[in-house]
Nucleic acid binder design. Sequence first.
RNA 1: GGCGACGUAGCCAAGUGGUAAGGCAGUGGUCUGCAAAACCAUUAUUCAGCGGUUCAAAUCCGCUCGUCGCCUCCA
Length: 487
Amino acid sequence: MPIRIYNTLSRKKELLQPLEENHVKLYVCGITSYDYCHIGHARSALVFDMVVRYLRYQGYRVTFVRNFTDVDDKIIARAKEQGVLPTALAQRFIDEFYRDMDELGVLRPDIEPKATEHIDEMIALVQELIDRGLAYPAGGDVYYRVDKFADYGTLSGRNLEDMQAGARIGVNAQKEHPMDFVLWKKAKPGEPKWESPWGPGRPGWHIECSAMSRKYLGETFDIHGGGKDLIFPHHENEIAQSCGASGKSFASIWMHHGFVTIKDEKMSKSLGNFLTIRDVLREYPAEVLRLFIFSTQYRNPLDFTEDALRDARTSLDRIYECLAMVVSLPAGHAGATSIVSKKDRRKLLNLKDHFIQAMDNDFNTAQALGFLFDAIKVMNKIGRLLPEAPAAQDIELLKSAGTTVREVSDILGVAGRDPQQYVEEKKKKLLASIDITEEEINRLIKQRDEARKKKDWTASDVVRDQLLEHNIELHDGPDKTSWEVKK
RNA sequence: GGCGACGUAGCCAAGUGGUAAGGCAGUGGUCUGCAAAACCAUUAUUCAGCGGUUCAAAUCCGCUCGUCGCCUCCA
């Protein structure tokens, strides 16, 4: 089945057709490392983690490159504030970034280039642009000559005239055109600097991605991704640089994900309304955050609320509890008749196909999850209706559906743990927050069982109420009473 | 001001020309000594509003209203 991806460049969904047979080359703009990452960064990492997992699941070889911007105005400013070297600050937050990513279970990209380690490549690229007449040095800086690049504005759907009309930036007298952007910045005293044909300085922000993507993926590659806020100017300028230098097309497909919002406002450093990844991870496990992020399609905005996170946690429990049920299924009997309706059987057998169809359609994880929960519901229903001597084919169906659930969940990076262990651990964790021991609970249950045998419902209910005061809920099963901490 | 996106039940969210997935919450029921959990049933004659195209529109086109984003660093 072909995978269709929405391409910002054409504003349409397009078939993924890798330039190299069966090999997808993907470049994603990573972080500028000067602070802890927030939930928006988590969404970016998780979206592309899902994309890579899915492409590999579908048999593609994927070369995934994601950079670190480790030299930049913000890093320099923050380092100055803290009285540390910019390089030390950048490295520190790269380490913190890895800590968050590992916690989220994000697979490492194949290549993670740093800007500071590719200064030579950037200088070479800037020189090529100068040689082609697309850039010019001015007072130690080098600028890109936007009006010499005919396609400038195509990605973001703008034209130079409109942009100038609404320009909020002060005009730099050194620029030939107000929209020209900087490729190389002359060093100011005390700033990190490298030698270059135009004097000591450091690269502009955009040039690193052009230089590094070319080095690791070639002049033309398949997918370039990032947040919607990078469309302009970052990606627009990358196109100008890369296509300008090579004369060839750059990325075939441009993928941009939506923002995480709080109260419908973009979460951002400048607005100060952001939550860091570790803030959230303290309250909710990574798998919950993943389910939350994937509950909507990647291009749509995603509003962060406590309710939404709680929903996600309930959903995750639901998946694990269903899987735990499947694991503890009794053996089937060859002679017994099936109790599963044709419709339900088909739903389970079609889960994988439906899931894949949703994912093929521009990674529609929300729809894919819909199919997943549909199957969970059917599985719970069958599990509930199973007689004491269930039909072998029904047990077989549930077990294979369980395997499929795990298989497709893995694409989203959820439900990867042992389900029985998950249920147990959850119980233990909740128990830790309760002022009663497991032994005490079991003792009380025993006491209650005796009362129930004598049909002394009053005494029985006293015990249950007693436990309920400790937030313990009892569930009377056919042969024994189980308990759980009330949610 | 320019450009763009979005508006589907109480909330979240699919659906992209053929008659409204799924989740959470709610209500009724099955089960139970009573419960809980689970399951079953139920919850939008309608997709912001108004026009238009079509045999057929939530889906395409136009206008209006509302929300958000980019145009300055931003995932």
